[in-house]
Amino acid sequence: MITRDIEQFLAAARRAPSDFGPATARAAFLVAPDGFRLAGQSAADNHYMADAGAFDAARASAQHRDLHRAIAQVLPAVCFAGDPETPDALFPNNVFATTAGRYVVGRMRHPVRQREATRADIRGFFGGVLDYAEIDLSTQPHPCELTGALVIDRARGLGFAGLSERCDAEGARLMHEALGMRATLVFDLADGEYHTNVVLAVLAGRAAMVCPGGFADPAVVDAIAALYAPHAIMLSPAEHAAFAGNAIALSEDTVWMSDGAGRALAPATREALAAAGFALHTVGIDAIEAGGGSLRCCIGEVY
């Protein structure tokens, strides 16, 4: 079921058992920030991106290696080489996503990012090494930037698809079908928001971090809060701006975000994460955040 009807979605979501699959990924993949610089096309609809002068490629590369080393302590993590012709490729979760036995290639809005979908090495890893079946959405006309636009509760098979210039209604439907969601709620992001995963994180199927200002309709925020109570954590505008909503659970008991996001957390937010059973881990990636994304955007998940 894919719907804009909040009550219909909630009814289905509350019936969904936690047996859709593992709540967190079994491995991760990254793409190195080789050629990291301002991508003008991407900046057109991503207000989080810094000006060109704020990009420090060497510092971003060093921080990306730090990120790789850190998450490799929790789960296997592979890193593919970057490509100077694709300066946004260090955010691979928008282009490639996985579910049990298959991988999906997304359709990016901007031509500079559409090049990423043609990478033979990443396709070969999933199709040849892991023997996953391919679902290629990259050549159809509807933008669907995968787990940037679609936040997934992997335990229950629930999707939260925020519409923007990076994902339209048909793109949301295609992702829902390709990833086999049981139920997906479709809604509009607030003006100026480009990806759902900047304003919403579902953590190991039992908690949610929500930036209310990122949603066009407050009723969607209320629905998510009701579904994940008592572990629905509402983030302040300051936490939102620091990318605290761009978090990810890499195991049942750890949640990861950037160091800047961690420093912005209010004491009540830290207490709420601990009450939900999560230890907080942070990595300094301020140079990477100049590119308009944060820690979760850097991590592709292997299910």
Rank of each mutant, 00 (worst) to 15 (best):
L146F: 10
N246H: 04
R182N: 10
V95S: 05
A117L: 09
A169M: 07
E239T: 03
D188V: 02
D56C: 14
G262D: 00
D121T: 09
E301V: 02
I288F: 02
M257W: 01
R123H: 15
A244N: 02
S61R: 13
T3I: 05
T196K: 06
M1P: 12
A276M: 07
H142E: 10
D136N: 11
E145N: 09
A16M: 08
G148Q: 00
P84G: 11
I224T: 03
R109F: 13
E271N: 12
Q140K: 09
L189K: 01
C297V: 09
R37S: 15
H231I: 10
V302P: 01
D259R: 10
G101N: 11
L163Y: 08
V74R: 12
R14Y: 13
H68T: 09
L38T: 06
T269C: 08
T196C: 07
D121G: 13
A272S: 14
A161W: 00
A57P: 05
A43P: 06
A261D: 01
T282Y: 02
R182P: 04
H240W: 04
Y103M: 13
D136W: 07
R14H: 14
R123E: 12
C298E: 04
A12Y: 04
E289A: 01
H47L: 14
H281F: 06
A216I: 08
I233Q: 01
A58M: 10
Y103F: 15
A275F: 09
Y132A: 11
G293E: 03
M234K: 09
R263F: 02
Q63S: 08
A52V: 09
V283H: 00
P87H: 10
H64I: 03
A225K: 13
D5E: 14
V95Q: 04
Q63M: 04
G277M: 02
C79E: 14
G21V: 02
G293R: 02
E289K: 01
P230Y: 03
A77N: 09
T118I: 08
R173S: 11
V105D: 03
P111C: 13
V202D: 00
P218F: 11
L146R: 03
R182I: 04
A268M: 09
T24Q: 04
F9W: 15
V78L: 15
S258W: 03
A274F: 07
F126I: 09
M1L: 13
P92I: 12
P141Y: 06
G159Q: 01
